[in-house]
Amino acid sequence: MELKEKIRIIEGFPKEGISFKDVTTILDDKDAFKYTVDTIAEHLKNKNVDVVVGPEARGFLFGAPIAYALGVGFVPVRKKGKLPCETVSVSYDLEYGTDILEAHKGSIKPGQRVAIVDDLLATGGTIQSVAKLVEALGGEVVAMDFVIELTELHGRDKLEKYDVMSLVEYDI
């Protein structure tokens, strides 16, 4: 399947100069959604993954069904204040400030093999923070899988110590 044909491009969203890659058109196309989940699950099947982590919010949309396909657990990583129990957090830099990501304490056990799944790899800052959070909980990141990668932003460069795979690449 040519997955790129299934992704809607919206120019000027959320602001002028941005070319937004909309994955909802994958989600509402049963064949494209199944292909995406199956292809990422295939990439992960021999990595002995114990748990899939998906960052808020679109990482939930792909990470949870991939965890199901692999027969493993799913751990959501959320923005500060969204999880009800005791959390572990990591702070990361944004273009204008910082943000905090959290996961429940104990959601990843020491030594567990973790795959991080998200819709988009851009600059790599957010996903690098997710990896730090997984590692702070004692997990080992064995793979990072993305639906889309924006190659001109060189996010992969920040993640060179990890096994990174993306299904579709755009220059921007």
Rank of each mutant, 00 (worst) to 15 (best):
F20N: 06
I18V: 15
I7W: 10
L83S: 12
T123M: 04
S107C: 11
E160S: 15
G59I: 05
G111T: 00
A32D: 05
V52M: 09
S166H: 11
Y68A: 14
G111C: 03
I40M: 13
E140R: 13
D163A: 05
K80M: 10
I100R: 01
F60P: 09
M144P: 08
E5T: 13
F33D: 01
P76I: 00
Q128Y: 14
K47T: 06
A41W: 08
K34V: 03
G139P: 03
L83I: 12
I127D: 13
Y170W: 11
G111W: 00
K82F: 07
T151A: 15
T25M: 09
T98G: 02
F20M: 08
P84H: 03
N48A: 14
F74M: 10
L121Y: 12
M1T: 14
G125N: 12
F146P: 08
E11T: 08
G12T: 03
A64S: 15
D157N: 14
E135T: 01
G54I: 02
F146K: 08
L120M: 14
D99I: 04
S89R: 12
D22C: 09
K4N: 06
E95Q: 13
V168F: 12
V53E: 03
I148N: 07
F33G: 04
Y162G: 11
Q112P: 01
T24H: 02
I40C: 08
A143R: 02
A143T: 04
E95I: 05
S89F: 02
A131T: 01
E56L: 02
V37E: 10
E86C: 04
M165K: 15
V88S: 04
P110E: 02
K47L: 15
F74G: 05
M144N: 08
P110V: 00
V53Q: 08
Y68P: 04
T24Y: 09
